[in-house]
Nucleic acid binder design. Structure first.
Lengths: 340, 340
DNA sequence: CAACTTTTGGCAAACGCTTGCCGCATGGAT
DNA sequence: ATCCATGCGGCAAGCGTTTGCCAAAAGTTG
C-alpha cells in the first residue's frame, strides 16, 4: 500500500468520509448514489450534497470487486492505425461514454493468438468485448463467446451477436458499375488470409462474376496497408484485368500510387474500386470509388447490442444480427474500360 | 454480487484456488507471481504450474484495490478521429503494452472542461495521464499535475514533464523554403484558439517573418478538420498571400480541395505547407508539403517519462522535457511564387 | 387499536488481492 | 555448542465498495 505517487498526499475521499459527513451509514451512501429509489429522497439529497462537498468519486476498482461489474468494455481491433477502425473506435467510444462505460482499446496486431490471449487476460477487466474484424478461428470464437459477453463486427458467428457490414451487397453494386462501364476482366485483390470478410467478399465476387460471364482473377493475400499497394498493383497489372476490386481502401490507395509510378493511368488503363470509404478515400488522386458504409454507426450498434446482452432484462430478447447497409460511392478511380 | 452474465457459470479461479493446488498460502502465491525473488525458486515453480493448470489470471481490480496501483494509464486526446493522434495512440499503446500497462483512451472533444472532468473522475482509475495537446488552462494544468502523475505532449508546463514536438523549428524551415521560392506574402492559417501549440506556431511565424521582412497575415481560428478547409481556403485567398502555413494537415488538405474547386492552382497560384505529416498527406492531390515529426515516437517517449515518474526509484531524476525533432518534407503543394 | 405490510437505514460479510509482521529453518561465524 | 543473520512462508489486516439480511419506523387496513 505504498504511496507511490508521493505528491501532496491528497487523501482521496472514500465512501466512509461521505457517510460520516452526511451522518449515515456507508451502505446508505452506496445506495443513494447507485440505487436511488432505495433511499428516502431527503436522505439522498443530503448524501449527494456531502459527496459533492468532498468531491467524492467512487472507486471503480472497489465497485468492480464487490459487484462483479467493471463498467468497462474492451474493443479489440486488428490494427489501430487502420483508418477503418478509427470510425468504429469513435462510434463505440461515443455510445459507451453515453452509457457510462469506459472503453478499453486493444490492438491485436492482426494476430488470432494475441486476440485470444487478450480475451483471456481481460476476462475480469471488462464486462464485455467487441471484436472488430476478428481473426479468431471459429472454434476459438465459440469458446470465447461461451464464457463472456461478445459482439463481433464483420465476422459472423452463431454464438455471438454480430454487426455485419453488407460488403457482399456492395460488391454486387461495384460489379454492376464496372460491368456497365464495359469491363469484362476483373481482378480481386485479396486481404489477409485470416480475414473472414475477405473470404466472404471473394466468394460473392466470384459467384457474381460467373453469373455475369465476367473473367475473374485473384491476387493476394496482401497485408491491408498502403505499403502493400505496390506489390498488389504489380500483381494485378500482370493479370491483364482492366479493373480491380480491392479488399480495402488502404490497399487501394497504395495501388493508386504504384500505378501512377508505373505510368498506368487510373481509370483509363485500370479502374480501381476500394472498400470502406476511409478517411483519405475522397482526397487521394484520383479520388477513390469505394464501397461505403456507416462504419461509425456500426460501432454504435455493436455497443447497443453488447449492452443489451449484459442487461439481465433484455439478455435473451436482444438482437443477434444487425446488417449495415452499404452503397457504392463512385469517384474518379473508375471509368470506361479501355478498348484494347 | 449478482452473476450478471449468467453463462456457463464459469468459476474464474482465484488466488485461493492456486494456493490450494500448490499447497501454499495465498500470500506465497501472490509473491511468487508478482515478486519473484521473495520466494524460493522451487516454490515459485510449483505455484506457476498450479496457476497455469488453472488458467489463473489475477484480478486487476483486486490487485489495484489493495496495492493502490491500477497498472493503467489514460491517454487524453482532443479528438480520436484526428489522424495526428492515431500515431500517438499507437506509440503509447505499444510502449504501455510492453510495460504491462493497459491504455485507457479518452476523447475529450476539444473541451477543457471535459478534460478536467476526466482527470478528476479517473484519478483512481489510472496511475497516470498523458495529455496530448491539452486544452487545459495553465491553472487547471498546475492543479491537476499537483495531485497526479501527468505527462503532456505538445503543451509546455512547468509542473508536468513534457514531450514537445519542435514545430517552431519546422516553421523556420518552412519559411526558409517558401522564402527561397520567392514568396514574400505569407498567411498563417490558425487552429483552435485554445491550442497552445497554435499560439506557439503563430508567434514563431510572426517573429521569423518580421526578421526576414516578409509580409504576414493571419486567418482563423479554424477547427482542425478537413471540413473547415473551405472557409480557411477562402479566407486565405482573400489575403492576397501566395503561400500559407497551415496549423495542421487536416485543415491543409481541406484547403487543397477547396482551392481546386475554386480553380486556384496549387502550387502555381498558392503554395500550402501543412503540419504533422499525417496519414494522407503523401497521397492527397497535390501531395502536401508538411512539417513532419516522429509522432509515434513522441507517444513512446511520453510513456517512458510517465512510467519513470511513477517509479519511486527514478521519480526525481527523470527527464522533464523531451523535444522531438522535426523536418520539412517537401512535396507537391509548394512551388515558386507566381510572378504577379 | 391490533395486526400487518412497506419503507428505510444499518450491520457486516463478502469481493480477490497485497503486504507488514512474525516465526521457523538453515547455515555460517565464533 | 551457541548465537546471529538470512531466507522463506504463513497469518491476518486491510483496500473501498456492494448487498443480503434484519430491525425499527411509518403507514394501512379492518
Amino acid at each position: 500500500m505504498a504511496d507511490s505517487k508521493a505528491r501532496t498526499a491528497a487523501p482521496v475521499p472514500t465512501i466512509r468520509d461521505v457517510a460520516e459527513l452526511a451522518g449515515v451509514a456507508t451502505s446508505t451512501v452506496s445506495r443513494a448514489l447507485s440505487n436511488p429509489g432505495r433511499v428516502n429522497h431527503v436522505t439522498r439529497e443530503r448524501v449527494e450534497q456531502a459527496a459533492a462537498a468532498l468531491n467524492y468519486v467512487p472507486s471503480s476498482q472497489a465497485r468492480g470487486l464487490s459487484s462483479g461489474r467493471t463498467n468497462a468494455i474492451a474493443l479489440l481491433v486488428p490494427d489501430v492505425t487502420n483508418p477503418f477502425y478509427f470510425d468504429i473506435i469513435r462510434g463505440t467510444q461515443n455510445q459507451l461514454k453515453a452509457a457510462g462505460y469506459t472503453q478499453l482499446l486493444v490492438d491485436t496486431e492482426e494476430s488470432a493468438e494475441m486476440e485470444a490471449d487478450t480475451l483471456r487476460k481481460m476476462q475480469r477487466t471488462a464486462d464485455g468485448f467487441i471484436l472488430a474484424a476478428s481473426r479468431l478461428t471459429d472454434a476459438q470464437l465459440v469458446e470465447a463467446a461461451s464464457s463472456q459477453a461478445i459482439v463481433t463486427i464483420n465476422r459472423s458467428s452463431s454464438n455471438a451477436p454480430t454487426v455485419m457490414i453488407d460488403t457482399p451487397g456492395a460488391v454486387v453494386q461495384a460489379l454492376e458499375h464496372l460491368s456497365s462501364l464495359g469491363h469484362t476482366r476483373i481482378c480481386y485483390v485479396g486481404g489477409p488470409a485470416s480475414s473472414w470478410s475477405n473470404a466472404k467478399r471473394w466468394k460473392t465476387f466470384e459467384d457474381e462474376c460467373r453469373e455475369r460471364g465476367l473473367t475473374t482473377s485473384r491476387v493476394g493475400p496482401f497485408t491491408p496497408k498502403t505499403t502493400s499497394g505496390a506489390a498488389a498493383a504489380d500483381a494485378a497489372a500482370r493479370t491483364g484485368a482492366t479493373a480491380c476490386i480491392v479488399f480495402n481502401d488502404l490497399l487501394a490507395i497504395g495501388m493508386l500510387q504504384r500505378l501512377r509510378e508505373r505510368g498506368i493511368r487510373v481509370p483509363e488503363d485500370m479502374s480501381i474500386v476500394g472498400c470502406d470509404d476511409i478517411f483519405g478515400a475522397d482526397f487521394c488522386n484520383p479520388p477513390l470509388t469505394t464501397m461505403a458504409s456507416p462504419i461509425e454507426q456500426a460501432g454504435r450498434v455493436a455497443v447497443s447490442m453488447l449492452l443489451a446482452q449484459l442487461d439481465p432484462l433484455h439478455a435473451g430478447s436482444s438482437r443477434r444480427l444487425a446488417v449495415m447497409p452499404t452503397h457504392l460511392t463512385v469517384r474518379g478511380s473508375t471509368g470506361p474500360a479501355s478498348p484494347n
